[in-house]
């Protein structure tokens, strides 16, 4: 089959001349050269692209909030919350942009602390923040970092004993901080019992961890 305009011979699968668009009658409309299925560009949206988009949208809405706030109150009052919440969310961008998870974790802990501090400060609740929320979040993050750190050692029993000791220290701190908040004094009462029992168990495990036979038995049953 030839195209009467262009003079070129057309493949049997073509129903029109791809050069000039002239329609031709072809009996064989089956295209053996190219599939009928269509390929699409990367199906999954890039996470980075998505994150940038969300941050941009939030940034714009934050600006709008500030403008509204200024228009109504003639000063920045309640939009402080929005600004700092935006900064907090934007700091999560670190999680995506780098592969250094630990650095991201620390950055995010501090941005969370900062956000809560500002909320507490604006609400005149610094007491509540300084003795309870701030230290508790800090302890929680240190605890996670500590577990991450000890998980690199292979000796399971020794790891458990370190873990128990750390728990004991945290319990003491919790006990002290609560009393500091309630009665303005660092008093320990119930944490003595947990300290003693945990230290005893931890030291037994620590001792056993040097026993090779015992270790293999434990490893056999407890490997992750």
């Amino acid at each position: 089959m030839y195209c009467k305009n262009c003079g070129v011979k057309l493949d049997l699968s073509l129903t029109k001349c791809p050069l000039c668009g002239e329609k031709v009658k072809n009996n064989n409309s089956y295209n053996s050269l190219y599939s009928l299925d269509i390929d699409y560009l990367a199906k999954d949206i890039s996470i980075m692209y998505f994150a940038k988009l969300i941050i941009l949208i939030l940034f714009l809405s934050t600006i709008v909030t500030i403008v509204c706030n200024l228009a109504i109150d003639k000063r920045i009052s309640w939009s402080f919350y929005v600004i700092f919440s935006f900064l907090f969310i934007a700091s999560h961008y670190f999680y995506l942009s780098t592969s250094k998870r630990k650095v991201c974790f620390i950055v995010n802990t501090f941005s969370l602390e900062l956000l809560l501090f500002i909320i507490a400060y604006l609400n005149k609740g610094l007491n509540w923040y300084l003795y309870l929320v701030g230290p508790f979040i800090l302890m929680g993050s240190i605890f996670i970092l500590f577990i991450n750190f000890i998980s690199k050692f292979k000796n399971i029993l020794r790891n458990i004993s370190y873990f128990l000791l750390f728990v004991a220290i945290i319990l003491i701190l919790i006990n002290g901080l609560i009393s500091l908040y309630m009665v303005n004094k660092f008093i320990l009462n119930w944490s003595y019992y947990s300290l003693i029992s945990l230290v005893v168990v931890a030291s037994i495990l620590f001792g056993l961890s040097f026993n090779k036979k015992c270790m293999t038995e434990v490893e056999k049953r407890l490997f992750i």
Binding site: C6, G7, V8, K9, L10, D11, C17, P18, L19
Partner: peptide, 21 residues
């Protein structure tokens, strides 16, 4: 494409066209 291939045809060559569209 049209100009190029019609030029070839005018020079006396036979051109067979395939396309994905």
């Amino acid at each position: 494409e049209r100009l190029f291939f019609t030029k070839l045809v005018k020079m006396g060559l036979e051109v067979e066209i395939e396309s994905n569209r």
